[in-house]
Design a protein around this nucleic acid. Structure first.
Length: 422
DNA sequence: TCTGGGGTCCTAGGACCC
DNA sequence: TCTGGGGTCCTAGGACCC
């Protein structure tokens, strides 16, 4: 049976989340900034129209912001994560097979739906999500995931489509592919687009018709998979169940530059704590840890370094991981630099219940340590806030990131509920 | 003068994604 | 003054083996 995929993508997702709880933002230019209020990572259509580029450092756009009274928000990931859950839960009613691809995108398999008018179904999906969550979405429908991405672009870029687009037949697909620059295809980044352009391949139709051997030789099997998808042959796997992460990274830019080892230790401890909470959540223990530090690459003398260690037996016990991380940090920390960020990576995971045992060392699993972590996690999840934390993380957190335009966590905190004044 | 050939495994780094 | 964070996968190249 032929496959059919719908890609549902939220429009300017973070901005749309802010608008749900603040209707005065409607029709206004709005941007949401990255952590530490650095770059614009979500822009309303109005903000795009006045020329604020994706990923632009906001201080470089200050003129535009002032001139057009752009509404600026700090990233509120607790709110966005919760809203994402609502959108996905709404979508799950429309298919037995849903792949949550990112915080604001999902693929729906419509393969088993016979005699379905896809365009009508797409519009129903769009209207239902808007009605139940307040989030506007675009829907693209096609025989492969890559083509569904293209269809979604078409739906977004052509207002007369009303936010929903479905390819009708082979000829229709080719006509649209001819108008699609290769750079816009899912999986073709700046580098590959440049290479393709140099060889005379500028649009998606030309890529679709390029010889397999040539693609494989110069652009790897990944691009060949993309080409197959453009030809209507599904080649990218559909994953209903989110596989466990293979690596967990926690890193942040500091609110201000840090030049004391003590503060660096606090930050590292804090990130280790966050990362280990995440691996416990997926039932993993880590067999490898890496710590990295970096000064500001935009000014002064630049220094970055990292240190790592294999952990045997693997563990998810925060105090142990913090201890190791601090030793690694001490090995790479150099006095006299002003650091801009640091981070921690945990990887080489195994299942906490199936880990290799070490005859001569205490093991994390089934120990009182594991029970202690369970108590901490259960408590912190129940109040949706890290109320229990380790003293090593520090109390003042002077290094913590800046977020001076943050909205409330309307949906996850009783004390931050939306207030309506009458 | 001249220095094999084929494996495997691991790691670092690149490219890409949102 | 001010430039995000978190992932995945692939390839090249080195180390090592016989």
């Amino acid at each position: 049976m032929n496959k059919v995929y719908a890609l549902v993508d939220c429009n300017s997702f973070y901005v749309s989340c802010e608008r749900v709880f603040n209707p005065s933002l409607k029709d206004k230019p709005v941007v949401v900034l990255s952590n530490n209020d650095g770059c614009a990572i979500s822009r309303s259509q109005e903000a795009k129209d006045i020329g604020i580029p994706m990923g632009a450092p906001i201080f470089k756009c200050q003129d535009l912001v002032n001139r057009h009274d752009v509404k600026v928000f700090s990233a509120n990931f607790v709110l966005y994560g919760d809203m994402s859950g609502r959108v996905m839960s709404t979508l799950s009613a429309f298919t037995p097979e849903l792949e949550v691809y990112s915080i604001d995108e999902a693929f729906l398999s419509l393969a088993g739906f016979k005699n379905l008018d896809y365009l009508v179904y797409g519009r129903t999906i769009k209207n239902t999500v808007k009605g139940q969550t307040g989030i506007p979405v675009s829907v693209g429908i096609a025989p492969t995931k890559t083509l569904a991405k293209v269809a979604n672009h078409i739906a977004k870029d052509n207002p007369k489509m009303g936010g929903v687009f479905c390819f009708s037949d082979e000829k229709d697909i080719d006509q649209w592919l001819e108008k699609t620059p290769v750079r816009e295809i899912w999986g073709i980044g700046a580098e590959k687009a440049l290479f393709l352009n140099r060889h005379g391949i500028t649009n998606a139709l030309q890529l679709k018709n390029a010889p397999d051997q040539w693609i494989k030789k110069h652009l790897t099997v990944l691009t060949l998979r993309t080409v197959m998808e453009l030809r209507g042959i599904p080649s990218v796997t559909f994953e209903e169940i989110l596989p466990n992460k293979k690596a967990i990274v926690t890193s942040r830019t500091f609110g201000h530059e840090v030049s004391s080892l003590n503060e660096m230790e606090e930050a590292i401890a804090s990130y280790v704590s966050k990362a280990s909470e995440k691996i416990r959540y997926q039932g993993s223990v880590a067999g490898y840890i890496q710590v990295f530090i970096e000064t500001n690459p935009f000014k002064g003398s630049y220094y970055r370094n990292s240190a790592s260690l294999d952990i045997s037996p693997p563990t998810a016990y925060t105090p142990q991981l913090v201890g190791i991380a601090k030793k690694l940090l001490a090995g790479i920390y150099k006095q006299g630099y002003r650091y801009k960020s640091c981070g921690v990576m945990l990887t080489n995971f195994s299942d906490e219940n199936a880990g290799q045992q070490d005859l001569f060392k205490p093991i994390y699993t089934k120990s009182s340590n594991q029970r202690l972590m369970k108590v901490v996690d259960t408590h912190n999840q129940s109040v949706n806030n890290s109320q229990l934390f380790f003293a090593a993380e520090g109390l003042k957190k002077a290094w913590y990131m800046n977020q001076s335009h943050k909205s409330k966590r309307y949906t996850t905190r009783w004390d931050e509920l939306l207030e309506i004044k009458i």
